[in-house]
Design a protein around this nucleic acid. Structure first.
Lengths: 276, 276
DNA sequence: ATGTGGCCAGCGAGGCCAATT
DNA sequence: AATTGGCCTCGCTGGCCACAT
């Protein structure tokens, strides 16, 4: 049984990320009812969707935590927890990094360099000319935690919770319509060779920063390409067709032949509170 | 035994706020060691002190929570919890609203209108001319929570955690020096008559918004006047003279004669983790 | 020197549009 | 019409400075 993620076979590292995401999807599904009520009905007040996405992500995930490691980090990541993660390969110290996004787009996410878990290579085409670009990872592969008997290397796992919505009204409830919650597991830095061996292969794209204004570089994750590379890394909880206020409980995976599957799953809905 | 804060005598409402603050001061004291290590050593990256103050406030307070009420609100308040608060007058449903501030000033705090718990009247002097100003409270006196047998009215309690610091270095640790943690309990709206009967009496002052640019009005709390009005509502945890990395454990109160007192208190230091 | 007033800076986080394909 | 590139908006938080006392 391993305790150090650096000794894990890459397949086991992927499984750790998959298990992490599966748990987060369960937590979001169970909270999706209240999440939509709050998101849709919070009064407009400037940049409220940002803080709504952050708060709702926290409320969804905090009740699904596991064996905590008593170590905290401060910084720009919305939700971060150190914990012992149980896997078949061993009990792995992990730092979960989850970032909440609110967006009217549903095909990509923009990451700050500090949210990038792997060195990224990608092509950018402007005026028919394609050039290779590169951005170094800003997320360390692990955090070091002093411990009895040595230093623990807690593997970082990067999750993005993407609230896809549109505006509905400026004067009355509902002000917004939360349509889907996308959940992305962006591969750990050790998995670069598999997911992004070169600029032509991968799910990265030019960020939304302005070069002209010399803004800090950002980078984008494209949903469709992430899904093609690994279906379960792009989950979609949709409210479409919902009659009970909750999202559809479906987990995206692959079967033994490598085909994409959709597996319904059971869940315990957290009650939708606050209905007057 | 009351369950509705609206029926509490004002003195009991003050005691509820005092008990709330006392617990928060204890929590911050116990966490002050790690808080300073993290605050001082986090690498500069733009507006990092804001998020540091927020994260540290959360880490300090979340371990000191009490009997939670299963109700969540989303919004711009940094730390918010619904809970049952035990007082001698009854078990009172409460929504704690704590906002974190980072500042190089140590004599006042700026509040958004949405952080203002009472209607405020105050004088503004410009060019020798004094005029009365007014700003309506943006914090509701309570939040309504549907419950078995009726609607609970959870009293809001507004706390501000003010990290007073200065910059030290741009290139090496420590980057900052966290000097004091001020903790303010701003009186509930029902206490306006006592604390702010008119524009000439109170601790409010002109906010730091720009009228010229038509920014949303803000308002300031002046520490000295809050302390004069009610000494325990302005607490100061200072690192000055500290040899162990923790703040001085002193609670400010008043004796029976109304004189200000300083009471040392015992605490269980949370270990300062992460020292390499 | 301090205590107030208040303009502005910087920077997140996305909206949104334009140029391609 | 859908995809990708990227400029700019908007608002949140305080730094910081200028008077006034």
């Amino acid at each position: 049984m391993h305790q150090d993620y650096r000794l894990l076979p890459l397949d086991d590292l992927e499984l750790l990320e998959k298990q992490t995401l599966r748990m987060i999807v369960q937590a979001l599904q169970q909270y999706s009812g209240e999440a939509k009520r709050i998101f849709d009905n919070a009064p407009p007040k400037g940049t409220e969707v940002i803080v709504l996405a952050e708060d709702l992500t926290q409320y969804a995930l905090e009740v699904a935590e596991i064996y905590p490691i008593d170590r905290r980090f401060a910084g720009f990541i919305d939700y971060k927890r150190s914990r012992w993660f149980p896997t078949s390969a061993g009990l792995i110290p992990q730092v979960l990094l989850a970032d909440a996004k609110a967006s009217k787009e549903n095909n990509r996410d923009t990451l700050q360099a500090s949210q990038l878990p792997m060195d990224a290579d990608f092509n950018v085409t402007v005026d028919g000319v394609t050039t290779a670009h590169h951005l170094d990872a800003g997320v360390p592969q692990h955090m070091e935690i002093p411990s009895a008997g040595g230093v623990l290397h807690a593997v970082t796992t990067s999750i993005f919770v993407h609230m896809y919505y549109r505006d509905v009204s400026k004067i009355q409830e509902p002000y917004r319509d939360l349509k889907d919650i996308y959940v992305l597991a962006v591969p750990h830095g050790r998995l670069k060779d598999k997911y992004n061996p070169n600029a032509s292969t991968g799910f990265w794209g030019k960020g939304k920063h302005s070069d002209a204004r010399q803004e800090d570089p950002r980078i984008r994750v494209y949903f469709d390409r992430l899904r093609q590379a690994c279906p379960w890394r792009l989950q979609q909880l949709t409210y479409a067709g919902s009659t009970d206020g909750f999202t559809q409980a479906i987990w995206r995976d692959v079967d033994a032949s490598g085909f994409e599957t959709n597996e319904p799953f059971l869940y315990l809905p957290r009650p939708i509170q606050g209905e007057a």
